[in-house]
Design a protein around this nucleic acid. Structure first.
Length: 769
RNA sequence: GAAUCUGUAGCUCAGUUGGUUAGAGCGCUUCGUUGACAUCGAAGAGGUCAGAGGUUCGAGUCCUCUCAGAUUCACCA
């Protein structure tokens, strides 16, 4: 053996060795183990890998999940369980499209230069170019995943399953199309679900204005055109006389009659205690309008469009004076304020609080203020009376069918479930799975807007009726960018285009999480025949706690819906990887750890060990250079201990005993205890603790005490060798490369009866080694 | 406004159902080492386990309160 462990020359060889033996494939493993007379339990153990973005390079969070999952996989494989780890990658809709758009912007182009199928193809090619990177890097960390079962979220079979789920949900009444307020980001050009909205405090001027006989306060003067009522608290004595009456409100640009409604939502203590109601630009106003529809005669209209400009939605009922039409939100607000200031010497503008601080919703991606806009979108009903997704998920938690590992995270998950709103799954982007919905054209040409590239390849927006005067439907479809059908347009849900060609397909795509929420089900349905029955429900879902509501919760919602079984029995949530000082890693701080350069310098085993050792589910983990060095030192220690044992086997030194030394019995007893402890810890998902136990017992007991004791003949060479082989097995899940490399060295000497450590038997009985 | 987590050695963190003398890595002090390993070994310093109260034969561990920090959710006319 070399005097030093050279990871650079070893890791690739070992990975090739495993791949050649097909040791990641459960079928091959079963054969191999039977050949070596090792037990097989037929008990399935399965993990579906959280699919990383197909075009993302590896970061330290990936290294964390690879390390933890591979520990569990390798451990279970050695136990003789029917073990599988299914890898895959995610198309990551919005994230990927925006990365791509940045590249376009660098070439002075934008998505508006391309029709949707061209753009989709361009992103597809771009992702294909990069998708190998993530996979290669995961392999370099030693992931023993079955690559023959690899899946991508846009694989044909996966897409087809996802569409079927949508169709079934629709048939069951759990999918509906509705025209209601959604969170829209004007910069990203798409709507988001509640979960993608962050909040921040912001200072804006708050204007108190005369509103008929009442006074109201508002920040958003530009939405005032969409007001349809005033609301007060039913118990507010100041305003009781007005409730149910029509008041006449004077604006700088005219007057309007509107009702005063009473709603508990209004806080009499806040502001003036009277609220103007703008249903289509404020979620609470929308709610009040829904509850008081019959008291409000006016049909509300939006006054801001998806471009962020003021517009008259209904040409038969003009709300906005000409000079405001087409203004952006900021300018419209300025103009309205100016009008209030000058009209009758500012008589309607009672007061302005310049330092009013309030919280606003912002886009989680770009940070721009979220605009609540009314759009017809598809929603999944999460509290449906016949098929209550939320209740089913809660029940899985209650019954213990799914257990959550990670400091207090089960309570957090329950809190999410108990407060969950219907899930908006429509996204106005191209990169994703198209929603299989077809709108009827004939008779509704005036209710459908199409955005397409005209003959000069210029972006055009028009009513379908107008567009059809110049273009054929085929031409429009070919050059289509997006379409928007009014809520009144009839549609069919169908996996293929309806035979009658007078239909236009919805251009929205699914929220990426809609497909990834089905991931454990659809991967197993399509990986290899029989996999689903063999491995579903999966054993462990291992992922970061930061995506608990986005992913884990939704996998439970849809997984249970699709299969009547919870998709996983244990959820292991790892924490964020922080730097040495416990700070979050960020590019701007310059404290980002690149797992691959750590791997290059210290070896994959050291990287894995440093991440895993003493890590606790649900708790952030702080790592730095000293940790990688310490773990690298362990690899060296393992290597040299093995070297010593091997030398002793070949050429015993003076004073050593071949067998039956005085401390052998005590040695074996303690060895047994170590195996039991580590086994129990791994069974209990105490992965970080198990790593710590192996580390300490190997170094400070086996090396420091036992090897020394063997030199003076107190422990026999035979016992020492046996101990070495057992520690190699215990260490293997954590440090697969070096342990396998050493195993191969022993194998040459015919010391080991098992050819490969990866498929060797876990030392339940230490005498069997 | 609410929820969750955290507080243990100089630093970063473990502590497995409540059970001897509270551990690891890094750092520090002294010494050692030519034959497994300086990517090493031995010895040592360093802890009122945030604070107060309670349960118990026994509490770092369970309960209550207080303080400090982190995260998340909700609301804001």
């Amino acid at each position: 053996m070399e005097p030093r462990y050279l990871h650079q020359q070893t890791e690739e060889k070992m990975y090739d060795l495993w791949e050649k033996a097909d040791a990641f494939n459960p079928d091959a493993v079963l054969e191999l183990r039977k050949k070596e007379n090792n037990p097989v339990t037929n008990k399935p153990f399965s993990i579906v890998m959280p699919p990383p973005n197909a075009n993302d390079p590896l970061h330290v969070g990936h290294a964390m999940f690879v390390s933890l999952e591979d520990v569990l996989i390798r451990y279970n494989r050695m136990l003789g369980n029917d073990t599988i780890w299914i890898p895959g990658t995610d198309h990551a809709g919005i994230e990927t499209q925006f990365v791509f758009e940045k590249k376009l912007a660098a070439k002075d182009q934008s998505r508006f230069n391309f029709d949707r199928s061209t753009l989709f193809q361009m992103i597809w090619d771009y992702v294909q170019e990069n998708s190998g990177v993530a996979v290669d890097q995961i392999k370099k960390l030693g992931a023993s995943a079955d690559w023959s079962r690899f899946k991508f979220t846009l694989d044909k079979d996966i897409v087809s399953n996802v569409l079927q789920t949508f169709e079934t949900l629709y048939k069951d009444g759990l999918v509906y199309r509705d025209f209601k307020l959604v969170n829209y980001c004007l910069k990203c050009g798409t709507s988001y679900s509640e979960l993608e909205v962050d909040h921040k405090d912001q200072v804006d001027p708050l204007h108190t204005i005369q509103y008929g006989p009442l006074t109201v306060a508002t920040v958003r003067l530009e939405t005032i055109f969409g007001d349809v009522a005033v609301a007060v608290n039913p118990n507010d004595k100041r305003y009781k006389q007005y409730i149910g009456t029509q008041i006449e409100v004077e604006f700088p640009w005219g007057t309007k009659k509107m009702p005063v409604i009473a709603d508990e939502y209004v806080d009499p203590e806040f502001g003036t205690g009277a609220v103007k109601v703008t249903p289509y630009h404020d979620p609470n106003d929308f709610m009040m309008w829904t509850n008081h529809k019959n008291e409000i005669s006016e049909v509300p209209q939006p006054v801001i469009n998806t471009s962020g400009k003021l517009y008259n939605a209904d040409q038969n009922n003009i709300l906005i004076p000409k000079e405001y039409v087409g203004l952006g939100i900021v300018n419209a607000r300025k103009a309205a304020l100016e009008a209030y200031k000058t009209y009758k010497g500012g008589a309607l503008l009672l007061n302005t609080n310049e330092k009013y601080s309030h919280s606003v919703g912002i886009c989680y991606r770009c940070g721009r203020q979220i605009e609540p806009l009314p759009l017809p979108q598809f929603f999944i009903s999460v509290n449906h009376e016949k098929n209550n997704l939320v209740q089913n998920a809660l029940q899985a938690l209650d019954s213990g069918a799914t257990k959550i590992h990670g400091a207090g995270r089960e309570k957090i998950l329950r809190h999410w479930l108990n407060n969950l709103k219907d899930w908006n799954i429509s996204r106005q982007i191209v990169w994703g799975i198209g929603i299989p919905v077809w709108y009827q054209i004939s008779g509704y040409e005036n209710k459908i807007t199409v955005n397409f590239l005209d003959k000069e390849k210029k972006y055009t927006s028009a009513l379908l009726s107008e567009a059809l005067q110049t273009y054929s439907l085929e031409e429009i479809e070919q050059n289509l960018q997006s379409m928007n059908a009014d809520i009144s347009v009839p549609y069919v849900v169908s996996l293929s285009k309806p035979s009658n060609d007078q239909y236009l397909q919805e251009t929205d795509t699914f929220d990426t999480w809609f497909s990834s929420s089905q991931w454990p089900v659809v991967t197993l349905k399509n990986a290899k025949p029989g996999d689903f029955d063999r491995f579903y429900p999966t054993s462990v879902m291992e992922t970061g706690y930061d995506i608990l509501p986005f992913w884990v919760m939704r996998m439970m919602l849809l997984g249970i819906y699709m299969t009547q079984k919870t998709p996983f029995s244990d959820v292991y949530l790892h924490g964020l990887v922080r730097d040495q000082k416990g700070q979050k890693m960020s590019k701007s701080k310059g404290n980002v750890i690149n797992p691959l350069s750590v791997k290059e310098e210290y070896g994959a085993d050291a990287l894995r060990m440093a991440l895993v050792i003493r890590s606790t589910p649900g708790q952030d983990k702080s790592v730095g250079l000293p940790d990688f060095k310490a773990a690298r030192n362990l690899t060296n220690k393992v290597w040299n201990a093995a070297r010593f044992v091997m030398l002793q086997t070949e050429k015993p030194s003076e004073g050593s005993a071949e067998k039956d030394a005085p401390q052998d019995e005590a040695f074996e007893k303690k060895l047994k205890e170590v195996v039991q402890t580590v086994t129990k810890q791994l069974n209990d998902f105490k992965i970080g603790l198990a790593a710590d136990t192996v580390y300490t017992e190997f170094w400070h007991w086996y090396c420091d005490e036992c090897i020394e004791a063997s030199k003076s003949g107190h422990i026999s060479r035979k016992a020492l060798l046996q101990g070495m082989l057992i520690f190699l097995k215990l260490l293997h899940p954590f440090m697969p490369f070096i342990t396998e490399a050493i195993w191969q060295e022993f194998s040459i000497l015919n010391i080991t009866k098992e050819k490969l450590l990866i498929t060797a038997n876990w030392p339940y009985e230490i005498s069997t080694v």
